[in-house]
Design a protein around this nucleic acid. Structure first.
Lengths: 199, 199
DNA sequence: CCTTCAGGTTAACGACCGCTAACCTCCCTG
DNA sequence: CAGGGAGGTTAGCGGTCGTTAACCTGAAGG
């Protein structure tokens, strides 16, 4: 994990605020003037950094999917041969929870605004998502070999639903603390998968 | 359960198609002309049945929340004293799964377009949702008394996330069949709650 | 010192969208 | 058989939104 110390670029500011606004009011519910105002410039000024509003959403969604997949692949590679499938599954769950807790607006966008993308971008995001799911399915089936593949895939999607529920958990502060929440989600995910395999 | 045999009214047709379109492309992404076309009339014709586009969304969301809460209250009343909390919890889960499997577009809208409502409608929906959650929390805490209330509430929200994942499970047909899917979701929900309580 | 360019600004255009107005046409009923 | 309401139609208004055009400015570089 490389920690950044330099200031965020204007592009990054824009993406961050756009993600927040899109998550709050939906892609079509946010105007470019609003996004500009959120970073201290006015609407058309955004076009110095992005070719259009669509491109911001596309970059956000492709970034999310890619980041999730990359992280999962890294965990898979690190575990290769040195740890059990059980530990690898825990690592995948942990990675997804970190993302769901730290980037709630992005998690919200991820399964909400996909259909607003142009065909080419949407296909790319779908492909990244599919690879991420398949990676999970393989690991889950190693831990629970008696789970048939279609059931495993459904179970994985459902676990994503469970983990991605963080935006509904109330603002950070009403929660029992980040660590406790992460632990709770982790236990529930494992419990759900175990129960899925006990068919 | 009273089964309807009479034809749906025009109002009901409109609501059904509007729900589907809103779920597919978002509230702001659908025009009134499109909704009208989906039921064979043209845009402004809708205003004979609804005062505006907002009213359709409001009626849908209030209807969903009310239906979920009413069903849960009925199950609670039927179980009063005659069955264990365990059986009641299973009944709640079953009711929610039926809804998630039979009315996918509505489930999608339910946690996606709430913020597009007028203040008064949004408050009403939030109140209904809160009552539904609290009802679940009470039953869950009867089954798992060692679960503290904040954790129980988080767990319930997460289970909703799990059960509401049905729209991501692929079109009906790629699934192992409705019964098997319902059973899988049920097992996973119970497993997740059991694991939550084992802290 | 002049040029260039990145990164802004405001004005405005064209398209779209929710909604209203005005009108039409059955069908039911007294 | 009048007539009135239910449920449509098309035309069009007013506002909003994404985008472009034209212009400005401050800092870097030869």
């Amino acid at each position: 994990m490389t920690t950044r110390t330099d200031a965020p670029t204007r592009r990054e500011q824009i993406l961050k605020e756009a993600a927040r606004l899109f998550a709050e009011r939906g892609f079509h519910g946010v105007g470019v003037d609003e996004i500009g105002a959120a970073v201290g410039i006015s609407g058309p000024g955004l076009y110095r950094h992005f070719p259009g509003k669509d491109a911001m959403l596309a970059e956000l969604l492709v970034g999310i999917s890619g980041q999730l997949l990359t992280g999962a692949k890294r965990r898979l590679a690190e575990a290769e041969g040195v740890t059990s499938s059980e530990v690898l599954l825990d690592s995948l769950i942990e990675g997804h929870i970190d993302f769901a807790l730290d980037d709630r607006p992005l998690i919200t966008l991820h399964d909400r605004e996909l259909d607003r993308l142009r065909d080419t971008d949407r296909k790319l995001v779908r492909q990244l998502q599919r690879q991420y799911v398949e990676l999970w399915v393989e690991v889950v089936r190693e831990v629970y070999p008696e789970l048939a593949e279609p059931s495993a895939r459904s179970a994985v999607h459902s676990v994503f639903g469970l983990l991605n529920s963080t935006p509904h958990l109330g603002r950070p502060g009403s929660l029992p603390g980040r660590g406790a929440t992460a632990e709770l989600l982790h236990r529930m995910a494992r419990g759900a998968l175990a129960a899925a395999s006990a068919g």
